[in-house]
Amino acid sequence: MTASLGWDGLRVEIPANMEPVILDRGFVRIAGPDLPVLDLRFGPEKAPFDPDKDGSRLLKASGIGDARLAPFHAPWTERLEGGIWAAPSAEARLFVLRPRETKGVVAALFSAPPPTTLLRTIVVSLDWAPPDAWRSWCCYDLRFETPPHAVLGTASFRPGAFKLEFSLGRTTLIFERLAPASVLLAETTLETWLEKNVLRGHGRGLCITSSGPAEARFADPASPWRRILAGLPFNPGQVRGGVRHDKAGNRILILTERGRSIPAQDFDRTFSTYATTAIQG
């Protein structure tokens, strides 16, 4: 049994008894009881990864600077695209992957030589999407997509209030997940709750459009003056967003866009993919 993790372009399947303990930009730490801790470092490179040229940098960063990266072969690695290297040669615990043809690299460092089943689960599922593509995010119970070039700013996972903030040029995208919805809404409608809680935070009057009892959109009132002013450099820009009440998951999902508006179809795709996944266990 495995669970998907999608973070900052990385895609990986992790065993059900492991969970992410650190999620940062270009770095994920996964841990589980009685299993080696796994650090995943990933990101774009200027050129396709070359183990001779770029390997020493990764080895030093992994604390095994005296080892050498060597091609890694196992029966289950034959179907993998791209290359895979490992170090040290005796009991390998650093595995470096070049996903497909992208100019990116993923380094998987285990705190101890991993069991074959764990290594296979991780390595076979590892993939990485470059920043100029749509990226899928899947962490804890959240699932969404971000447009190309969206850069993760801050991520906080407080009990009942998850918040991830992305910057995309002069636009800020904020994904919020509030729970439990039954307590927050307290018998009121989503629109009433939105007026009372979310819009107050923006400090100005926003138009709310309900599309059913479980979904609403909010935006600055559409007026020609506002549209012209929003394009000026000193203007903080417009606010636009969507709220969804996930009744099955007992959560409220909020997507807010601040600053220069992204194309409507990109915003719609981002909002429509924003959902929660069922909790296992």
Binding site: D141, R158, P159, G160, A248, N250, I279, G281
Partner: peptide
């Protein structure tokens, strides 16, 4: 009862 993550419930 609230269909939240076990770790989240523990923290709360």
């Amino acid at each position: 009862h609230y269909a939240c993550l076990p770790a989240e419930a523990q923290q709360a």
